[in-house]
């Protein structure tokens, strides 16, 4: 049994308010996938294809309308509140690095937030661990004192990654983590992610519409279109469906 099992998951929204005709909009319909520890699943698709909604459901912040998600054999939405043992296993890195941090906190406080929720560390231990995390993501200790407005996008995304790995989770959802960065920084962050994945035995779900980045990091690739997974392959070259090819064509010129 895989670490993460998503079975027949769907998410429906009812659109239309009081006295209006109600329309059901299905953002994700009947999606099944599984992921083993230490693997990376690339989830690609155009905007609005439901990949971020699927990501949010796996993160435990959006209850699916039907279907089940199990993490390590435990049903994620089985109880009203997600069990804290599972809660800490799945973390996230968002695209918008400035929006994902409270602008009033220092980098150190940002990284410390998950630690304070789950671990009782003394001030000295916490400080030492935060410094260790900062060096793991390639930042010097003095960056801990800076606020988001004093950091560049790439540095801030490293802080976000440090926060995501702070609890030693087993799965990190990367929701377009490099789309907002410029090309050189994108490569650096991708290297960092790959390095961390091997070092910490992390699983990733890498949500993106950039095939080039996905093919660098992913062990398997799933293509989403209109809320469904239309194709699952292990290498970009194996994509056959028309919709996937369209994505491929749109991206390939930047490859070479």
């Amino acid at each position: 049994m895989s670490f993460l099992e998503v079975k027949h998951v769907a998410k429906r929204y009812v659109v239309g308010s009081f006295m209006q005709k109600k329309v059901i909009f299905e953002a994700v319909s009947d999606v099944s996938l599984s992921l083993n520890t230490g693997k990376c699943l690339g989830l690609i698709g155009e905007s609005g294809s439901g990949k971020s909604t699927l990501g949010r459901m796996i993160l435990g912040v959006e209850r699916p309308s039907s279907g089940s998600i199990t993490v390590d054999g435990t049903e994620l939405y089985g109880t009203k509140k997600i069990p804290s043992a599972i809660r800490r296993e799945i973390q996230v890195v968002f695209q918008d690095c400035y929006g994902a941090v409270n602008p009033r906190m220092t980098a150190k406080q940002i990284i410390a937030e998950p630690l304070r929720n789950f671990q009782k560390l003394t001030k000295v231990e916490e400080q030492a661990y935060i410094n260790e995390l900062l060096s793991m993501v390639g930042l010097q200790e003095e960056y801990g004192e800076k606020r988001p407005s004093e950091l560049s996008g790439g540095q801030l995304q490293r802080i976000n990654i440090a926060r995501a790995i702070a609890l030693k989770p087993r799965l990190i959802i990367l929701d377009e983590p490099i789309s907002a960065l410029d090309a050189i920084i994108q490569v650096e962050i991708l290297h960092l992610l790959k390095q961390l994945k091997e070092k910490l035995h992390l699983s990733y779900i890498f949500i993106s519409h950039d095939l080039q980045a996905v093919s660098y990091l992913a062990d398997q690739i799933a293509v989403m279109h209109k809320g469904k997974i239309i194709e699952q392959v292990t290498r970009v070259e194996e994509l056959t469906e028309h919709q996937s090819k369209k994505l491929l064509q749109a991206r390939l010129p930047t490859l070479f």
């Binding site: 994902a100 409270n102 929720n117 609890l167």
Partner: peptide
């Protein structure tokens, strides 16, 4: 805003999210 969602994912309780964020 995404930082509130991240706080939820980090396991911060609703009360703490209200006070801190």
């Amino acid at each position: 805003r995404s930082f509130v969602m991240v706080a939820r994912i980090c396991g911060t309780s609703p009360f703490k999210i209200a006070i801190k964020h």
